[in-house]
């Protein structure tokens, strides 16, 4: 028979009345939220809460990840995600190496797998990776012993952004159950939308997407077995009716060459989140945006900086959530 081991025994986990991490957490990588259970998401959010406490200290540093090496490998430009991961790693006392596409041997023709192999030989424990091709982190996870965190792959997923969005909503509402969340904008090209749809529906929220049909991913309007159920409402005023949370996506101007929108002006006229449109949502509604914000295009400046906006908070929470993920991934042993 197993008994709970004594708390001070250095070879054993802390004795608690709550279930230990072993029974809840099964991830070696963070690739997408589709394989996250409700319990796992809750563990991430609870752990992020404790990280928020560390961030509130005058000296925001704990020695937890001493001796671990974390590499950020970015094949696409990024400010907040990369800096957020770097700060998260440093707050936990890990060593951080930053690589961006321009400084990589990929410009000399090195393959992704070879680059990753090299990083592993150099001692990387966790690789935080952003890549323009959907699925690239999955290949990396197959070849590497190190843990991979997907910091955005193509149109596919951006799980850490979704988790910080969930954390921000929970910080205001306590819970996501039954909340109406409206996602407005370029759903087709948005990895943030995809990851959020997985996370939000797992947490029990009801998701409505609002965009012109040309910016809707193929098949989303039909019943899907492999993708969560969402409502579609192309009319922004109807979509906003009674919303608890409004997520505005960046209109990815660099991906609008294919004639999906008749004109930018039409998009602004029909889909910009303005103060008068926001009145349709609940009085206590939250306005979110994953950044970078195109003010005056998908969102009007007075809303982006208005009282309902939690955009700045999302960035701060991003550090806490990423600290939580780094902590949960960096186990020893093996």
């Amino acid at each position: 028979m197993m008994t709970t081991p004594s708390k001070d025994d250095p070879t054993l986990l802390v004795k608690t009345e709550k279930p230990l991490a072993t029974s809840v957490w099964s991830h070696r990588h963070i690739l997408g939220l589709e394989d996250f259970t409700l319990k796992e998401i809750e563990l991430v959010l609870d752990t992020a809460d404790t990280m928020k406490e560390v961030l509130s200290r005058p000296i925001k540093r704990v020695p937890t990840l001493r001796g671990k090496t974390i590499v950020t490998l970015f094949y696409e430009p990024s400010t907040r995600t990369r800096v957020s991961f770097e700060l998260a790693a440093k707050n936990l006392s890990a060593d951080v190496v930053n690589l961006s596409a321009s400084s990589l041997s990929a410009t000399k023709g090195e393959s992704l797998v070879d680059t990753l192999d090299t990083l592993e030989s150099l001692g990387a424990d966790i690789v935080v990776m952003r890549h323009p091709h959907s699925g690239a982190p999955y290949i990396a996870a197959k070849y590497l012993k190190a843990s991979i965190i997907n910091a955005g792959d193509g149109w596919h997923a951006h799980p850490t952004q979704a988790l910080l969005d969930l954390y921000t909503i929970c910080a205001h509402r306590g819970n996501l159950k039954g909340l109406k969340v409206v996602i407005i904008g370029d759903i087709k090209h948005s990895r943030v939308a995809r990851s959020n749809i997985w996370g939000l529906t797992t947490m029990g929220a009801e998701v409505t997407v609002c965009c012109p049909f040309t910016l809707l991913p193929i098949g989303l309007d039909k019943e899907q077995h492999h993708f969560p159920k969402v409502s579609i409402q192309p009319d922004i005023e109807l979509a906003l009716e009674g919303a608890d949370v409004v997520m505005v996506l960046r209109l990815q101007l660099e991906r609008q060459q294919g004639g999906l929108l008749p004109s930018l002006r039409e998009y602004v006229k029909l889909y910009q989140l303005t103060d008068s449109r926001l009145k349709k949502a609940k009085a206590e509604a939250l306005v979110m945006h994953p950044g970078p914000v195109n003010e005056g295009i998908e969102i009007s400046p007075d809303v982006a900086h208005g009282p309902k906006s939690v955009i700045a908070e999302q960035v701060t929470n991003g550090v806490a959530v990423r600290m939580a993920l780094l902590y949960l991934l960096s186990r020893g042993g093996e």
């Binding site: 986990l13 608690t16 230990l20 404790t50 406490e53 704990v62 937890t64």
Partner: peptide
Amino acid sequence: DISFYRDDLASLDTQPIVHLTD
């Protein structure tokens, strides 16, 4: 909560659950 300061984190299979320090 002392989880962040444990000297045995490197030898644990999974991380202990962290409680809120207050």
